[in-house]
Amino acid sequence: MVQSDPIIQTENLTKVYTSRRSQTRALDRLNLSVQPGEIFGYLGPNGAGKTTTIRLLLDLIRPTAGRARIFGLDAQAHAVEIHRRVGFLPGELSLWRSLTGLQVIRHIANVRGMRDLRCAHQLAERLQLDLSKRVRDYSSGNRRKLGLVIAMMHEPELLILDEPTNGLDPLMQQEFNQMMREVRAEGRTVFLSSHVLGEVQAICDRVGILREGELRAVERVERLTHVDFRWVEMRFREDVPAAWRERLGDISGVSEVSIDGTTLRVRLQGDFDPLLRAVSGGYIRDLRVKEPTLEEIFLTFYDGDGKRAAQPERVKELA
C-alpha cells in the first residue's frame, strides 16, 4: 500500500475513567494510524477499549492524555468539520422511537444540509429496509440497517462503524461486506470495530488487536487469518483406545489430545493426512473441524504478556 497522510492518527491516546472509588484505564497510550482507502478492523474482546477509541475519535469523550487526528485535523478542535466528512454507526444504536425510518433520515439529512435523499433510498433498498415503519417497530437487525443508511447516505470519506454486523442476518452480512468493498474501491476509508474474526477476515486489509486498553499488534489480515491450526473433533463407533493419546501425541502437528469415550479431540497444525492415517483403525461416525477463535489466534501470536510469540512478523506500521 502506498503510504500517504493517514486518515486517522492517534498519539499516545489515553482515557482513564475516574469515579469516586476507582480509576479505570480504558485506553492506554494508543498509537495507531489508518491509511486512506483501507478497511481497518479494530479487534478485541468486549471491554478491550474499542468503543472508547471510537468515542474519542468522534469527540464524544475527551482524552486524559494524548491526541487524535482525523484527516490531519485535531479530533477535538475540529469536531464539526470532521463530523461533516465522517459516517458513524454506534455499537448500540438508539434513535427516536416514534419517528419512521424516513423521518429519521430526513432529519439527519437536514442537519447535514443534504437535500438529495436518493443515496439513502438506494441504500435502504439494497439492505431491504422498509423506511415507512416506525423505529420502535424495527427489529434489531432493521435498526442496524437504518444505522448503516444514516452512516453512509452522505457518502463520507471515512466510515467509523462499531460492531456493524451485529444483528444482521448472513445474507445482509454478505451485502454489507460487498458495500464495504465498494467503499474501498472508491478510495474511501473504513474503520470498523468487531469481536468477530470472520467479519474482519472477509473485508479488512489490516487489523489492530486491542486488549485491556492496549494495542497489542497491527497485522495485515491475511497474516492473522493464516494461522495454521484448527480443532478437530472425531466421533468413533467404539470407545477411543487410551493408547491413542500417546500415539497421536507423537504425530507432528498434533497436540492437546483429549479422549472422552467415543470422542477424540485434537489441535491440528498442518496437514490432515498423518492424523487420518493414525486413526484409520477406527470407524469414524462424525468429523468436525473448528476454526480457532480470535482469542486462540491471539494467543498463538502473542504470549500472555502480549509479547510477540514465534509467529509471523509484526507489521511495522503501528504508528
Binding site: A79, V80, S94, V111
Partner: peptide, 14 residues
C-alpha cells in the same frame, strides 16, 4: 441516557 445523543453529536453541529 437512551444513547440518541451519540448519533446527534456526531453530526456536523456544535
Amino acid at each position: 441516557d437512551a444513547g440518541i445523543l451519540d448519533v446527534v453529536l456526531t453530526l456536523p453541529v456544535r
